[in-house]
Computed example of a mutant assay.
Amino acid sequence: MGIRILKSKRVLKGLTRVQIEKKMNLNTKPYNHKENGRVKFTLDKVSKTIKILKLTLEEVDEIFLEVSNLP
């Protein structure tokens, strides 16, 4: 679910993947793989993404924190 939220936040901010990649000093494939959930974000990239997209704490929790369901 978090991956869809991340992409929608980027789109709502009017940013393309290329623009995000430039701001994060990444090549095209690494960010694409991160946004599609194939590769996990490093703490540094999470921090940069939060700043670029101006995410709230709730959004950060939904996107980046994977908590298993408790019984």
Rank of each mutant, 00 (worst) to 15 (best):
T56P: 02
L26T: 05
S68T: 10
L53Y: 02
K51Q: 13
T16P: 08
E66N: 13
K23M: 09
V46F: 02
T28V: 10
K45T: 11
R38L: 06
V18C: 06
K7M: 04
K29P: 06
I20P: 09
K54Q: 14
P30K: 00
R4W: 08
N27G: 12
N32C: 06
T49F: 05
K13I: 12
E58I: 14
R38S: 08
E62F: 04
L26V: 08
K48L: 13
E62T: 05
K22E: 07
H33N: 06
D61W: 05
I52L: 00
V11G: 03
E21V: 07
S68R: 12
G14C: 09
K34D: 00
N25V: 01
V60T: 05
L26I: 04
K54G: 07
G37L: 07
V67Q: 11
E62I: 05
K23W: 00
D61R: 07
I5S: 04
Q19S: 14
L26H: 02
Q19Y: 06
L15Y: 05
N36I: 01
K13H: 13
T16D: 05
F64Y: 13
M1D: 06
V18A: 15
I63G: 03
V46W: 00
N32K: 10
F64H: 10
M24F: 06
M24E: 03
K7S: 02
I20G: 06
G2R: 05
K48I: 02
K13F: 09
L26W: 01
E59V: 11
L57F: 09
V39A: 01
R17C: 11
T28K: 12
L65I: 15
E62P: 03
R38H: 08
D61I: 12
S47L: 14
E58C: 08
I50Y: 01
V60C: 10
G2N: 05
I50D: 00
M24G: 02
H33M: 06
T56S: 14
D44H: 04
R17Q: 15
I52S: 01
K51C: 03
N25E: 01
K13W: 08
N69W: 03
L57V: 12
R38T: 04
P71L: 02
K34V: 03
S68P: 07
E59T: 09
F41K: 12
R17W: 13
R17N: 15
L65A: 07
K7C: 02
I5P: 01
I50G: 03
S8R: 15
M24P: 13
L65P: 04
K34H: 03
K23R: 09
K9E: 14
T28E: 10
K48N: 12
E35S: 01
N25Q: 02
E66W: 07
E62R: 10
K13V: 06
E62G: 03
K29H: 02
I20T: 11
G37Q: 01
P30C: 03
V11F: 12
K13T: 07
T28P: 08
I52F: 01
Q19I: 11
L26P: 07
I5A: 04
V67F: 12
D44R: 08
K45F: 06
E66F: 13
K40P: 00
Y31W: 07
R4Y: 11
V11K: 14
L12D: 15
E59D: 10
S47A: 15
V67I: 14
L12Y: 11
